[in-house]
Design a protein around this nucleic acid. Structure first.
Length: 703
RNA sequence: GCCCAGGUGGCGGAAUUGGUAGACGCGCUGGAUUCAAAAUCCAGUUCCGCGAGGAGUGCGGGUUCGAUUCCCGCCCUGGGUACCA
């Protein structure tokens, strides 16, 4: 099948190094690094040995292998080619033709997936041919084996059983030689794959540390013209066509069977109407069913297929583009969505620049997030935009998981066993709708109605006569019957409460089961916050004017400082708790001062927009204007206090606290502490060995 | 196997540069108010111990005056990935 693909491989190195400039989690960066799979080593040519012993070694055929361990070259005891390697037929001797053919056939029948899942099963076939070892000139057998992949490296490996576990297994299985080229290492049970130690029995490499031997080996290989240093990437080019209808059509027609691009001024090409979105009878993609899907080069428009004459009118491409054709750059289009002539105006792109914050799941690490980076780099290289990376900062939000409930059905099928007794029977778990379960107890009648095939089932219950379900935390999904909709909670507590509770649950990156147990805590907070503005038995709106107290100002500015810092590091859960602290403190202070409450409402408005909007209007502002209010300014002057409660610790354990003026220096603190009579109890008559004073922090006495 | 993230009360979690472990909330216990309930308020709540006190951040070591935080080894959980030479 002829397909389009994108040369993402050409960007492998830049996609790798670019990661270092990004503010992403290590785990997503690592997933991309592994996917790109850079490995450095060298290529090395083995000449084919032809004919009889002693004959001239130089043959027209050379087999190129890629290795990351050139230091082990003297441990080579055979060479393995992928079954699909182009030289296999050429080199196989008459005697082994049939066996090799059979092996190739067997391998080709296996899918790539089968080949990968069948790792433990070692297979291979000798070809009868030999290469000559590039340094020792010894004869080395050539095998084929499907553990060597045609699509990676050169499709051929030099097998070093002592240094590679797969080679060791292969050698062990086929009784091939296992040379030991490591100093003082036992390889009788498995290969030695560590990259530390010394090389032995290896001519010019003997006695060298492995790392040094690698360098020396490549040097020598290059010097003798046997190969050269090389880097390989695991990343493959990305297929860019799909055999389906719903995708952007390619602006491409086929002239004499060769694809030709339609010029920009004639775009866009719009998907044709089709009767059905299915492939054609002879297996062409759905666009093969279109009746108007040909390109007229004189009119520069899409015309009926009947007009195809292959002189002026040609057939159009039938594949369409994949999802990532759009997902790789939509964020650029957002900057200039109505532009009819360019995908984005350069000036606008320069103004808005790359995405500041990308909140998304790490499941896109090897797909969308890699393609978008590649696409963006290409546009950058072409000068359309001025930034190479599309997403500077990324947060991977954790998934909210569901709590599934299970009933246990016997294998025979018509008995349902309660959780604690399930092990007495041979049962399988079945998901049950969580709407039918309350506190793990099953509504049996409801269950019978829900699954009519179990209407006549027998139930084996707990001793107290109830049916108890099992449970597990997993992804929320209709098929697992564990989906909880927020509607009910919004109904009961309001959208502000639900929103804040979600933020309060814990760090944004963390996955957690959806548990509404604590939601009334947030609800209580919002009610308490409301009460700051409403006094008396009938909760009438009432605030006081004038200058706030020192205490209230301290609470406010402490809150501004903390909440702002929390916002900047996306720590919403601690943000919410700081609002709770502020509310508790102001309640205790009985503060309902206008200045304080106005600033607090603005601060809280991103968290609880509905309530804050209402309070904002009650404070006398125009409806809808809170979004335009100035963000409260933090003033450190309100936070300075003139005393500090010093913890006094003995050998690191805090025992006493003492209030001291903040202005005291280390020496003064020391003098004061040493004069304290409370010390005696902990000193037990001994002299302290050492005293550490950290002003503004702690005093530690070493006994 | 390899790579990454994580492991703190009954529970969700906090501790931003090594400096008072358990903020905030849930739950629980006791009390006030109420005919009663809801709501609200007050007090308590890491564990052991009546107490004085002791122990304590997965386990075992180390560095330090001082470690949830840094270093070494191990265990467990979650995620990714795998004949990639």
């Amino acid at each position: 099948m002829r397909q389009w693909s994108m040369r993402i491989k050409a960007y492998a190195e830049r996609l790798l190094t670019g990661l270092e400039t990004l503010d992403w989690t290590d785990s997503v960066k690592d997933i991309q690094r592994n996917w790109i799979g850079k490995s450095t080593g060298c290529s090395l040519f083995f000449s084919l040995w032809r004919g009889t012993e002693g004959e001239d070694a130089s043959s027209e055929y050379k087999i190129e292998v890629f290795t990351t361990r050139p230091d082990t070259v003297f441990g080579v005891s055979f060479v393995v080619l992928a079954p699909e390697h182009p030289l296999v037929d050429e080199i196989t001797t008459e005697e082994y033709k049939e066996a090799v053919e059979n092996y190739k056939k067997a391998a080709s029948l296996k899918t790539e997936r089968d080949r990968q899942s069948d790792v433990k099963n070692i297979t291979g076939q000798f070809t009868g041919a030999y290469v000559l070892h590039p340094f020792t000139n010894e004869k080395v057998q050539i095998w084929i084996g499907d553990y060597v992949l045609a699509s990676y490296g050169t499709g051929a490996v030099m097998a070093v059983p002592c240094g590679d576990q797969r080679d060791w297994d292969f050698a062990n299985h086929f009784n091939l030689e296992i040379k030991n080229i490591f100093e003082n290492v036992d390889i009788s049970e498995s290969a030695y794959t560590d990259k530390s130690g010394k090389i032995a029995h290896s001519d010019f490499l003997s006695g060298l540390e492995i790392k040094d031997a690698m360098k020396k080996a490549i040097e020598e290989i290059e010097k003798r013209g046997l190969g050269k240093g090389k880097t390989n990437y695991r990343l493959r080019d990305a297929v860019f066509s799909r055999q389906r209808y719903w995708g952007e059509p390619f602006p491409v027609y086929y002239k004499d069977g060769l694809p030709t691009i339609i010029e920009t001024q004639h775009l866009p090409i719009i998907l044709p109407e089709v009767e059905k979105y299915l492939p054609t009878e002879d297996g062409e993609p759905p666009l093969g069913n279109a009746k108007t899907w040909a390109w007229d080069t004189t009119k520069n428009s899409v015309v009926s297929n009947e007009l195809i004459d292959n002189k002026n009118v040609f057939p159009l491409e039938l594949n369409t583009m994949p999802g990532w054709a759009g997902s790789s750059w939509y964020f650029l289009r957002y900057m200039d969505a109505n532009n009819e002539t360019e995908f984005v105006n350069k000036e606008k792109a320069d103004y808005w620049k790359s995405v500041d914050l990308y909140i998304g799941g790490s499941e896109h690490a090897t797909g969308h997030l890699l393609y978008a980076r590649f696409w963006n780099m290409f546009l950058f290289d072409q000068g359309y935009i001025s930034f190479a990376e599309p997403f500077q900062k990324m947060i991977n939000q954790g998934m909210i998981l569901g709590r599934s409930s299970f009933v246990y059905r016997t294998l025979e099928g018509n008995t349902i066993v309660s959780a604690s007794k399930k092990n007495e029977y041979n049962t399988i778990p079945l998901h049950v709708d969580i709407a039918l379960v309350d506190n793990d107890k099953l509504d049996i009648e409801g269950f019978k109605k829900w699954r009519s095939d179990y209407a006549d089932a027998e139930f084996i219950l707990e001793d107290d006569g109830t049916y108890v379900c099992g449970h597990e935390v997993e992804k929320m999904s209709k098929s697992k019957f564990n989906v909880q909709t927020p509607d009910e909670l919004v109904e009961k507590f309001g959208a502000d409460t639900l929103r804040m509770y979600e933020m309060f649950l814990g760090p944004i990156e963390q996955a957690k089961p959806w548990d509404t147990k604590g939601i009334n805590g947030v609800s209580n907070f919002l009610r308490k916050f409301w009460r700051l503005f409403h006094q008396g038995a009938d909760y009438a709106f009432e605030i006081t004017e004038g200058e706030p107290t020192k205490e209230a100002l301290k609470t406010l500015h402490k809150t501004i400082q903390k909440v702002t810092a929390d916002l900047e590091r996306f720590s919403f859960n601690t943000g919410v708790s700081n609002f709770m602290i502020a509310c508790n403190e102001l309640s205790d202070q009985k503060c309902n001062n206008r200045q304080i409450l106005t600033d607090l409402v603005v601060l809280l408005s991103p968290y609880a927009p509905h309530i804050c909007e209402e309070l904002w209007v009650k404070l006398g502002h125009e409806a809808g204007s809170i979004n335009k209010a100035t963000y409260p300014k933090f003033n450190e002057a309100y936070l300075v206090s003139d005393s500090f409660s010093y913890p006094i610790s003995f050998n690191g354990k805090v025992r006493i606290k003492v209030d001291l003026p903040s202005s005291m220096n280390a020496k003064e603190i020391e003098d004061h502490v040493m004069g304290m009579s409370e010390l005696n109890k902990y000193l037990e008559g001994k002299q302290p060995k050492k005293l550490i004073v950290v002003p503004g922090r702690i005093v530690n006495i070493v006994v």
